[in-house]
Nucleic acid binder design. Structure first.
Lengths: 200, 200
DNA sequence: TTTCACCTTGACTATATAGTCGAAATGACC
DNA sequence: GGTCATTTCGACTATATAGTCAAGGTGAAA
């Protein structure tokens, strides 16, 4: 029984289901990025799908937001895992992540908006970004590479500059070398010795 | 005609009107700080006032938010004008404002929440805080006192650290000397010479 | 072609929220 | 006590939104 059900489900469902779910996810991300009111009706309309279809894929809007957040998290990982594996130096990893994210924000305004909106909600994404940074910052602190001693404060400083500069990118044009200047400032804030910054 | 109307209005209205409006304003601020859904019904109930009364004082919720934002702005000015008048040094003014705000956030959690919530909406408050900081930072830049050259970036760095540390204060307990450490970090980020920091 | 599990639809109910308005309350002044 | 500008009240209408469900569509496999 179960075998047949699953086999059929796999064959028939995989495509349609995945496609529709992706549509809804994308529409949700777009509305979230735009800061629009996130209602089921709005999402369904933006996804060109009936209301009932939305509820077939998601329990409610909250679950959709969670799914968008998870997807954005994976997106981040893709952007950053290469460096995470290669770079041994925590400060180099932090620097890479920082500039990568700002550069992507500069080249993709909607992505930047999504990041900002998602960060200022209590999402899985916000938590995991914070956790990742804390690991690297704690390592840097343990190595005596930075002046700031409190990992939580270090994260707040790093995230604070990053998020606010991202907001700036959304609202104003990004001047040349913005990412680099912002990184320098963030490293100075942490109290990382100047010569460390040249790694990139 | 007008004379009588205005005289009566002044006598009769001033108290009741002001008191009720203040009640609504306070209720609105509390809900905004709590991050609750800001509906007219919720505000009216929290203010112990009928719905019609809300609409007698405010056009809609948006106008209430604007009024809360303006009030918070005045609150900020009261907190900071003493220093603004006395301190000639822009970096000393920035340092004073920075630590004052963090200390107040530490001692008044609801105030901190209100500041964060209000800052992440496009309010008059958010704009005016940014403008004030930009004036001082531009002066510091003009004096060659800081490394960062772009005033907008300088504001983003300063505001970013301040807001995120405030969020940290809300979510975690503030360790001793937090304000001071955060200020040191912010000044380092701007590239202010170390000895400048001792001003406070 | 038929079957059948899965997917999609949109109308429907229930609730929440915005905004209106006539009536009543208030209190200073006569 | 009576008058009257001002303020307050809450029921009412209209609209928006959440969530449900019976009916029908889809396409792979028999």
């Amino acid at each position: 029984m179960a075998k047949i059900d699953l086999a059929r489900r796999a064959k028939i469902g995989r495509d349609r289901r995945a496609r529709t779910r992706a549509q809804i996810l994308e529409a949700g991300a777009a509305l979230l990025a735009a800061g629009a009111a996130l209602t089921v009706d709005a999402v369904a309309e933006a996804a060109a799908v009936a209301k009932g279809t939305f509820y077939y894929h998601f329990e409610n809007v909250e679950e959709l937001v969670a799914a968008v957040s998870v997807q954005l998290g994976r997106n981040f990982d893709e952007l950053l895992t290469p460096a995470r594996a290669e770079l041994r130096d925590p400060i180099a990893r932090l620097s890479f992540a920082f500039t990568q994210c700002l550069e992507k924000a500069i080249s993709d305004n909607e992505w930047a908006r999504l990041v900002v909106q998602t960060s200022q909600r209590p999402t899985e994404f916000a938590r995991s970004v914070r956790d990742s940074l804390k690991v690297d910052l704690a390592e840097a602190i343990a190595q005596g590479r930075v002046t700031v001693r409190d990992p939580e404060l270090a994260v707040d400083i790093f995230v604070g500059i990053w998020l606010q500069v991202t907001r700036g990118i959304i609202e104003r044009a990004a001047p040349p070398e913005l990412s680099w200047h912002a990184l320098e400032a963030a490293l100075r804030a942490l109290g990382s010795a100047p010569h460390e910054n040249r790694k990139l």
